[in-house]
Design a protein around this nucleic acid. Structure first.
Lengths: 156, 156
DNA sequence: ATTCGTATGTTATATTGTAACTCGTTTGCC
DNA sequence: GGCAAACGAGTTACAATATAACATACGAAT
């Protein structure tokens, strides 16, 4: 089976941070220190991170106690602005590697190690959207995730 | 777009309860009073119910305090036995209307009223499974849900 | 200077989910 | 019958996730 190809850029490190900042400001929102800290913490995790994980990381990097509360607010903002995604079946968040373009994305989450890979396949997500529409749902936002075992964990 | 058709039976009321009991006993599990109560409570909700919602309903029907704890155990059993499904994006559960056959199912959840409809489309879910496999994931269990607005709530 | 909007802090609380241990009943075995 | 094993459920405690309500800080607009 063929995967939909991405010809847009995947950002990382500083480039990702810059792309995120630009995206957020283009939305008319501010790129504050706090938001930068939260984004940085989020981007440094190599698997989906809970709001509390992020609160802890930010607390460390700031040398003061940052409440989960504030992190939730910023994560909500990020999700709305397409800077981050929520992984529903893990109650956790990941940074979006290409905040400039909209996709329904598909997460593959390893039940063993928690590693999560993110694929885009607009034909699949489009099919799901269409199915929802023909059932009378408007403004559909597909949540497509797969729990399973990744190839690394399979070799045990 | 065409929907995969279901030619199997949709159960309701007593028939559903009977089908659930048969399925569970065929799995080698017991159909106890407590399990019957939980199933009944679950089946009576017209939208996904949290474990705590169910605990409350069961408490009422039994005239005594039933802890959420016990309900969770039974819900897990039900999910494993295909008597119920978990709606990940709502942290809630629904009864499976046809416990005798396996499907990856797709939930459409109205963000306004909470109503949830359940569709099966094996070509869509199969596509998601395949995408996961070709990314190296084994034993894939798709979670496909759509948040949106149902046709009833659209007319406001 | 005052007011307003926005971002964040602070505290409290609600909701969802597990862990650990106990008790009672049934079943099978001697 | 007596006993142990297996299972279902009760009970208590707690962990993890999420939201609500209100206070404070600060810059921009009037």
């Amino acid at each position: 089976m063929f995967m939909a190809r991405h010809d847009h850029q995947l950002h990382e490190g500083e480039a990702l941070k810059k792309a995120a900042r630009e995206r957020l400001t283009r939305e008319g929102e501010q790129w504050t220190d706090m938001r930068a800290s939260v984004f940085e913490a989020l981007a440094h995790f190599d698997k989906p991170a809970s709001a509390y994980d992020i609160a802890e990381a930010v607390s460390k990097s700031q040398g003061r106690r940052v409440a989960a509360n504030s992190v939730y607010r910023i994560l909500d903002l990020f999700v709305n602005a397409n800077l981050a995604r929520r992984v529903e079946s893990a109650n956790a968040y990941v940074a979006n590697q290409h905040p400039e373009c909209l996709h329904d994305c598909i997460f593959l989450i390893c039940d063993t190690c928690g590693q999560t890979v993110h694929i885009d396949d607009d034909s699949l997500s489009g099919g799901v959207r269409e199915a929802a529409r023909s059932a009378g749902f408007s403004a559909p936002r597909p949540v497509i995730e797969v729990r399973g075992t990744c190839s690394d964990c399979e070799h045990d």
